[in-house]
């Protein structure tokens, strides 16, 4: 793959980076990236119509036991008219109602019903209609980030974590695939899962910055979409919609994207440690819902 293609793949992958690996690396036969369209009707960015997508990092599941869980969960809204956006980062242990399955952790939704149920769960929680689900897995992530030439991340706090392998000074760090994965996995920091989720959001914005800097233009975009079409699992998305989506991403200035973590608290459900949805969450979702831009947060 050419570098620009690799960057494109990587940015989409980073949009849904896996944060915690429970079952070990996924098999090499798994698709590196999946793009699912989960609503009906043709997609076309319109000035007054925000676009919402769900980015998931899948853990690969435990072979023979269960399916993929989404350990990185981000709801991204883009306003085509203003070039602004919002990303809400959800802790994976957020305890929610999963349609048809009772209450469970948010990261179970994908394992129980794939991208459709993951999107429905988020829609029920937030009241926001999701158009696309982007999902990737741990195994190809490292290679893809490496192929893209790495990504520059402004590390907010110094890290020295033996569990994830995250060892970074505070400040700008050029990360290869392994480093990016370690950075996004580290939860042995102040704020735990909440801060980890915030860091995943930071990684997404760093990747978007890189994509914007290497904007390949319309013809270049067509070229990398052709390659993406050969390597990426695409469900329900037409090539034109995929093109429009990719061009929309390039128009977004990462500096105009607010990245916030869903307000919540720590609790238990039975023997499980969970994250409860905080009192401020409903207001946050409502603020994002109308135009994908936060006015009061």
């Amino acid at each position: 793959m050419t570098r620009v293609v690799a960057v494109a793949v990587a940015v989409l992958a980073v949009l849904s980076v896996t944060a915690a690996v429970r079952g070990g690396p996924a098999g090499s036969s798994q698709t590196a990236l999946e793009i699912h369209k989960v609503d009906t009707g043709a997609f076309s960015p319109r000035p007054g119509q925000p676009v919402f997508m769900l980015a998931l990092g899948l853990d690969g599941g435990r072979p023979g036991i269960d399916g993929d869980r989404s350990d990185a969960i981000h709801l991204i809204g883009i306003n085509p008219a203003t070039g602004e956006g919002t990303m809400i980062n959800f802790p994976r242990d957020t305890y929610v109602a999963i349609p048809g399955h009772g209450r469970a952790k948010l990261n179970d939704a994908y394992a129980l019903g794939g991208p459709g149920l993951a999107a429905n769960t988020i829609e029920q929680l937030t009241g926001i209609d999701v158009s696309f689900v982007l999902a990737t897995r741990f195994a190809p992530f490292v290679d893809m980030v490496n192929s893209a030439g790495g990504v520059d991340v402004d590390v907010p706090i110094a890290m020295n974590d033996s569990f994830s392998g995250a060892n970074f000074p505070q400040g700008r760090v050029h990360m290869g695939g392994n480093e990016a994965l370690a950075f996004s996995r580290n939860r042995h920091i102040t704020g735990g899962d909440f801060t980890r989720s915030e860091h995943q959001g930071l990684l997404i914005l760093s990747a978007l910055t890189k994509l914007r800097a290497e904007n390949p233009g319309a013809t270049g975009a067509a070229r990398y979409l052709a390659v993406l079409g050969r390597y990426v699992g695409i469900t329900g998305v037409t090539p034109v919609e995929l093109y429009r989506l990719s061009r929309l991403a390039v128009t977004i200035d990462p500096a105009k994207v607010r990245s916030v973590v869903m307000p919540g608290g720590i609790g238990t459900a039975g023997a499980q440690s969970i994250v409860t949805v905080g009192g401020g969450a409903a207001g946050l979702f409502a603020d994002m819902r109308d135009d994908a831009v936060l006015q009061s947060h």
Binding site: A221, A222, P239
Partner: peptide, 17 residues
Amino acid sequence: LTLLTAPGGEPVLVTAQ
């Protein structure tokens, strides 16, 4: 002109420089 074709070979998009 550059043409993008779908997996089935259908023409789906043309860019014009």
